[in-house]
Design a protein around this nucleic acid. Sequence first.
DNA 1: CCCTTTAAGCTTTTT
DNA 2: GCTTAAAGGG
Length: 614
Amino acid sequence: MLISMNDWKPSDGLTLETEALKAVYDLENSLVIAGPGAGKTELLAQKASFLLETNNCINPKKILAISFKKDAAYNLKERVSLRIPSNLEGRFISQTFDSFAKSLLDRFLFSLPEEYRLNPNYEIADTQQNAIIRTFAKFNIYINKDNKSYYFNRLLSQQLPIKDDDLIKNIWLFLLKGDEHNKATLSFPMITLLAIYILKTNPYILISLRETYSHIFLDEFQDTTELQYELIKTCFLNSSSSITAVGDNRQRIMLWAGAKQDVFDSFKKEFKAKEYLLKMNHRSAPRLLEIQKIVNNYLQDKPFVPIPNPKWSKDDGVAEIWYFMDYKKESKLVAKSISELIESHKVSTNDICIIVKQTVDKFAKSIIEELKAVNVTARNETIFQDLLKEDVVKLILNTLKSAIDTLNSDAWLSIWHSKINFEGIQGSKNEYSFNKIRKELKIYLKVVNKKLNSIRSVDELQLLFIDILEFYDLNKIRKYYPQYSQGTYINKLRENMEQFLYQYFHETKDWLMAIEVFEGKNSIPIMTIHKSKGLEYEAVFFVGFDDKAFWSFSKQQQEDTCTFFVGLSRAKRYLYFTFSKRREWTSCTNEHISILYQMLRESKVVEESNFYEG
DNA sequence: CCCTTTAAGCTTTTT
DNA sequence: GCTTAAAGGG
């Protein structure tokens, strides 16, 4: 059913602020500046609803949403499916940058000229880029800390085909084809370059891409790299497809990892994008917004006047700095305060977060100990965040949940979709095969339930997990999830999961509780600011607000101030900074980052407490 | 083997 | 900028 443009209203009776509505209705290229808590995801979901339901995105054209992280792509897809009728869901494609580039390459690699036509069984370079470094070594270039960025830049800054640079050309050709001892290996930037090459040399592919996607959403646009921006330009510049880019220049904390500094300006200029500025802040209490305003003024000339959610009263929000001599006292007070928040203020455990600038492990031990003393569990969330986003981990967890609780419909739907995808019958009309597989899956869940109840060791849990993967068929899993297609990565994930889950079962004596603990339902996450990006918590403790944590401050003051901004803007109501002169491994000062302290003081809402004595 | 000097990592994601 | 690991010298 189509809705006329004038009749469309934001779904679910939600009201969008004026600028957000204008951005939704804008059918040309646009850049939406959305500060923390402005409702980026909701805006994009509403725009998807508008475009699809009013047929401004003309059937059968699609919307392509590109994010950086898998969970962001997944969350956006989820939100959109809440906002649009299910028959339109198939026309909203939510992908990561890398999967978009790789899917272009994998589909069209045969249209590359012979010289650059890579081995289709190429591997993805590991994070250390060892295969590439080894290839440089074959050509007598030895990569070290000092020349690494020079050579990698030389490898990745030239458009294909390579002209006049024989070294780089030979390295490309070697990595594309491999030899008897070395598999063809590509990094994601290389994949992006190849995708650009394909699109530039095959006008028909480019035209069909533009025909397929009439509207493009770009999430966290401030993190876009030069190369990713180049891909977007190749795909959609001067086409009739329109782009909605959403981001926040004050949250630009990935410059050190290669984000393009001037991407907002380039986009506005080259795509003639209109700029929209969202003013609502749905997250933080008014007093905390005062801090955000001040920090904004140090980052840019444009004033930032976020309007708090009307649910707050104007003096809501608590911000404090605590000073200690000794890290033990710091840990004790943090633990005591967290315990009070949970007991007296009824803040739920997983609505509290401890963030550090850089290295979680250095701070975590003492805090975890002291929290344990007041019966609160905390953990370094990094490894769990990485594990829990894995498809194979989700598959096993949902299988266990469905086996234990037959009424858990989310878990059931998830494994049901996986199963029919593995069997290749999604979208089939054959009721018989659906029924057969449904029965098979239900019977197997009973088996899992029985086995689960007899497990007495981590080895037995391992056997069960192997059995589960065999039930779905490891080959089908590897085929459906290409990230597991080669190597032992999938086994490592499974083993990690076994260890944690068994440990939690040992502690709780209950599988469902063990799974909840594993998922972090009852523990306080400790994480870096970078990992906390995009998340929000009722209470945030920023531990280690000192010069050592901000060691790069003099070199990248702007970016570190952005990091500070991202960290403090995670908090909804309570925000605490702690400084300790002595730490387990060193002593600390806070003079180099005095400007950050000054910002907090300037906001006039931050209370300072001195615990140097006693 | 021990002491000194040099180098790397630190904040990240992606199939 | 500082901490830790690896490499080098006697």
